[in-house]
Amino acid sequence: MTSEALYRMRDLQKRYGSDFALHVQQMDVRQGEVLGLLGPTGCGKSTLLRILAGLENPSSGCIHFSGAPLVATALPLVTLRRMTLVPQRPILLAGTVRLNVEYGLRLRRIRNRTEKVDDALEQLGLTGIASQAAQTLSGGQTQLVALARALVITPDVLLLDEPTAHLDPAHVALVEGVIQRFRQEYRATIVWATHNLFQARRVAVRTALLLDGQFVEVGQTEEFFKNPSDPRTDDFIQGRIVY
């Protein structure tokens, strides 16, 4: 893993009307790392992920991706296709599970899709429901399909917004394993938003805590949990901050 910054954010702010959603003084996401993003509900994790995915522009400040400014409204398709976001509440297209998983490949006009799609379905235990209508799936199955359709396009950057929120422990372990293997195989950069402290500790190389739209602390995961430098991080880890 290198320490080269893939994303570079400086004095980045996002407001909705007069409300502040996010204010990042300075933050980098390094090439090839897994950055765990911790924070309570409504702290700005999803907003940050949408900005990183090129879906929204910040209200002020700047963000660079691979050395170039990331502007959602003028994002070249080739850059957009390097990153993908797995949202907290995925919406699947009308059609089968297979159609949904192969959708990103269709968008890229990739012809030999079958093997890749079969592989993604198998990895996430979806082979048995490949022909099922996507609209009939449970919340957990929907989340797995959303993850499969993101992995199959092998993005350079995988942005995950609570990807295991609706899953049972066995499937949580499955997803964590699949994503870790994906990262090793493709050297992908992953930003993983989660409420789950244990999950962040298991999967992240670095961990960051967002509170009220601001980064409180960013550090190597083990250091972050063992010796937090900010008392608010310690309070959050110990469960003393109750939201």
Binding site: R50, A53, G54, L55, L77, L80, R81, M83, T84, L85, P87, R89, P90, I91, Y103, G104, L107, R108, R149, A150, I153
Partner: peptide
């Protein structure tokens, strides 16, 4: 159609027309 759908499609690499 859910207003989130175009954004979710976009993040899979869809052009504006797609």
């Amino acid at each position: 159609v859910p207003s989130e759908l175009p954004l979710q499609i976009r993040t899979l690499g869809a052009s504006a027309w797609q």
